[in-house]
Design a protein around this nucleic acid. Structure first.
Lengths: 177, 177
DNA sequence: ACCTGAACACCGTTCAAGT
DNA sequence: ACCTGAACACCGTTCAAGT
C-alpha cells in the first residue's frame, strides 16, 4: 500500500527535477529535495541514485509525449500532426541533452531502447493515417523517419542547423507527389 | 620559462591519471594528486578542471600511438602492421571508454575531431605502403577503414563481439585478390 | 509506513605560507 | 616561479527521531 503523501512527494520531486534539469548548470540532489519541499532522505528513498531520478524524468517525458499523440492525430492532417509531434519530441530531446550528459553512455542507450517501441508506435500511427488519406507515400518507412529525426536532434547542439527547416526537408520526403 | 619540477609534476600527474582512469570506479582529483605525490593545488594549477585532465590523458595516448606507428610500419608487412596498430588503438579506446563517460558529449566530440587528422595520417601511411607492394587494393579508402574501426570499438562494451575477429574481417576487405 | 533534517565522510577548489 | 596542504563550502548518503 502506497501512502498518498509518498505518491505526492514522488510526483513533486519529479516535477522539480524536470524544471531543474532544463535549467543550465548543475543542481545537487539536496537542492532538488529542498526545492521540492522534502527531506533529503525522502528523495533518496524514492530515487536511490541520481541516475534513477534522471531516468524517471526521461521516462515521464516520453510517456507525456506518447500520450499527447492521439489528440494531435485527431485534430490535424497526418503530416501536420507529425510535424507538431516531432517538434515536441525534438524540444524534449533538447532538454534531455541536459539529462543525457548526466547519464552514462550505457544508461543512455538503455533509456533510448526502452522508449523505442512507444515512439515507433506513434510514428507508425501518423504514417498509417497519411497513407490512408493519400498524403504520405505508401513506401515510406517509420524506422527511416525515426533515424533521420534522431540525426536531427543529435545535430542540435553541434551546428547552427535550423531544426525546423531540417524537419521540413524530412517531411517533404514523405509526401506523395 | 617552465621549471623542471613543474614539468615533472605534470608528467607524474598524467601517468597516475592514466592508471586511475583505466581502473574501474571513480577517483577524486584529490586522490590522484595524493597518488602522484603532489599537493591538490599543484594538480589544479596544471589542470584547472577535470575535463582538462581527461583531455590531456586522451591527447597523450593518441600521440603515443601515432608516434609508435612508424616503427610498426618499418618492422611489418603493411597489413600486419595495420592490424597491430589498430589493435593498440582499440585497446586504448577501450580505456577511453572510461574517459569518455566522464567527458561531456561535446568535449568528447572535440577530442575526437582533434585526433582525426593524425590518426588518418597513420592509416593512410599503412595504406600507401600496402598499395605500393600490392597487398592492399588500390581502391581502398582510409576514411572507410577508420569508420569501420570506429564502429568496432563502439561495439566493444555493448555486445560480446570478438573485436579481433571483426578486425580480421575488415582487413580481409582491404586485401587484393 | 513514511518523512525530516542534522550529521558524516568526502568532494572540488582556494590560498596563505613556504622553498 | 612553483609547491604544499590546511581550510572552505558543498556534495551524496545515512539514520535516529518524529508523525
Amino acid at each position: 500500500m502506497v501512502r498518498s503523501d509518498a505518491r505526492e512527494n514522488r510526483e513533486r520531486i519529479l516535477v522539480v527535477a524536470r524544471e531543474v534539469f532544463a535549467e543550465p548548470g548543475e543542481a545537487s540532489l539536496n537542492q532538488i529535495a529542498q526545492r521540492a519541499g522534502v527531506g533529503a532522505g525522502t528523495l533518496y528513498r524514492h530515487f536511490p541514485t541520481r541516475e534513477d531520478l534522471v531516468l524517471a524524468v526521461y521516462q515521464d517525458e516520453v510517456e507525456r509525449l506518447v500520450g499527447a499523440a492521439p489528440e494531435l492525430l485527431a485534430a490535424n492532417a497526418p503530416i501536420d500532426g507529425l510535424r507538431l509531434w516531432t517538434t515536441d519530441l525534438v524540444a524534449a530531446m533538447r532538454q534531455k541533452h541536459g539529462l543525457g550528459e548526466a547519464l552514462g553512455q550505457s544508461a543512455h542507450q538503455a533509456a533510448a531502447d526502452r522508449s523505442y517501441g512507444p515512439v515507433m508506435a506513434v510514428i507508425t500511427a501518423f504514417f498509417e493515417a497519411g497513407k490512408a488519406d493519400g498524403s504520405i507515400r505508401v513506401d515510406a518507412h517509420p524506422a527511416d523517419f525515426l533515424m533521420l529525426t534522431g540525426a536531427l536532434w543529435r545535430a542540435i547542439g553541434h551546428a547552427d542547423a535550423d531544426s525546423g527547416r531540417m524537419l521540413e526537408l524530412i517531411l517533404d520526403g514523405l509526401r506523395t507527389r
